[in-house]
């Protein structure tokens, strides 16, 4: 029986979308669980930022085998930028990496991102959404620096949660 590629891809794409949505829902459900258990005196932002720090440390480990100082600082920055973009793409965002103005910088542009939509659905603030994402990316960069002895930085120049239409982050030395 011949394969119907359209049917197979449609099924697969649908399943991918569901799993991406489940990941985000699970985050907000755990967030709610933590806040309820911690009680009213807990600071939501502290809890959320701690989560993204833990996630950043863990995700960074996946990048260690692919980071390579032999490619030079320029190559390293581009590789790390692509890896950071990949974390967004895996979650259903549309993310592109561009070379920055100087050789030692890369721009990472989130043209679409599903996280703010989910934040709204679960009653989380846009500030929390933005700071959580920043914490996640900064932690990964910090771990990469600790691993390689480099001094890379990442800054947010535009953000969808701030109403800028895109998230634009600069990774640089």
């Amino acid at each position: 029986m011949a394969v119907d590629p359209q049917k197979e891809l449609t099924k697969l794409h649908g399943a991918l979308g569901v799993s991406q949505a489940v990941i985000k829902s699970t985050f907000f459900e755990w967030r709610q669980t933590a806040l309820e258990l911690l009680g009213p005196s807990s600071d939501t932002l502290d809890v959320v930022l701690k989560f993204w720090e833990v996630a950043g440390v863990d995700v960074a480990k996946n990048f260690f085998p692919m980071l390579n100082l032999r490619k030079g600082q320029e190559g390293l920055i581009l590789d790390l930028a692509r890896a950071l973009a990949g974390t967004g793409i895996a979650n259903g965002a549309v993310v592109r990496v561009e070379k920055g103005e100087g050789p030692l910088e890369a721009l990472i542009r989130w043209e679409r991102c599903p996280w703010p939509t989910f934040a709204k659905r679960y009653g989380a603030s846009m500030k929390e959404d933005l700071l959580g994402c920043d914490k996640f990316l900064q932690t990964i960069v910090a771990e990469a620096n600790a691993f390689l002895g480099t001094d890379l930085k990442i800054e947010t120049q535009k953000a969808i949660p701030s109403g800028d239409g895109v998230c634009l982050r600069r990774l640089y030395k």
Binding site: V57, A60, K61, F64, E143, A146, F147
Partner: peptide
């Protein structure tokens, strides 16, 4: 030094 581990 506290260099993160490459091997989990």
């Amino acid at each position: 030094s506290p260099v993160p581990q490459r091997l989990r």
